[in-house]
């Protein structure tokens, strides 16, 4: 996972509420067995017509959106399916942060594990971002600050351990594997209560 410390980027705004993970990456692309290359199918049904030609009015197909790393989305982005293919597709496309007033739990969790920073902001900040698409913003994960072009700094919450992992580009697996002794002790003391899957 690529570490995140500071991002400077223009924003792409998709103001629709409840953008679900089926829109981010439709189910027919989930037969893949790898994480790679899903950026091409990001928002496929909004982005391409039936012949696979980019729809010119869709935001990601517009020249101003190219190279943007920050997606500003309407309330409750990432709702629905738990597919991690959604953050994989967003990251593969080039996004590194998603900003909204609410972000669905599983999507937020999956994003944190893939170098995609979920940023929750207050309604007023969100309104400003939606009204100013393409704004040049700074995301400072060290200080948990979103910097707006007028100099305002908006604090956002990030779970402490996830922040540590993102700043260092490390996965949680290493930490979990280091808990081996505690896990073994738990298994030994709770073994009788656990019913195995096998009869």
């Amino acid at each position: 996972m690529e570490p995140i410390r500071i991002l400077h980027s223009r924003t792409v705004v998709m103001a629709a509420t409840n953008i679900d993970t089926d829109q981010i990456i439709p189910a027919r692309f989930l037969t893949t067995t790898t994480k790679e290359g899903l950026g091409a199918q990001l928002f496929a049904d909004w982005r391409y017509d039936a012949a696979g030609t980019p729809k010119p009015d869709f935001i990601l197909n517009q020249p101003a959106s190219q190279g943007c790393q920050v997606l500003v989305a309407g309330r409750n982005i990432g709702c629905g399916s738990s597919r991690e293919h959604a953050p994989w597709a967003l990251v593969d496309y080039g996004f590194r942060a998603v900003v909204s007033t609410e972000i669905a739990d599983i999507f937020r969790n999956n994003s944190l594990k893939n170098g995609l920073l979920p940023i929750i902001v207050d309604a007023a900040t969100h309104q400003w971002l939606v009204a100013n698409p393409g704004a040049e913003v700074t995301v400072d994960l060290q200080h948990c600050e979103l910097g707006l072009p007028d100099g305002r700094k908006v604090l956002f919450p990030v779970e402490a351990f996830a922040r540590f992992c993102l700043l260092n580009g490390t996965d949680e697996m290493g930490y979990l594997l280091k808990q081996g002794t505690a896990i073994a002790a738990y298994e030994a003391s709770h073994g009788q209560q656990r019913s195995r899957t096998t009869a």
Binding site: R83, E84, I106, N109, F161, L176, G180, I183
Partner: peptide, 18 residues
């Protein structure tokens, strides 16, 4: 509860989740 594929890997390897 539902989890992502990275967490599926965590549970495979450690039978635990953070």
């Amino acid at each position: 509860f539902g989890i992502g594929s990275t967490e599926v890997g965590h549970v495979f390897a450690t039978q635990c989740l953070l």
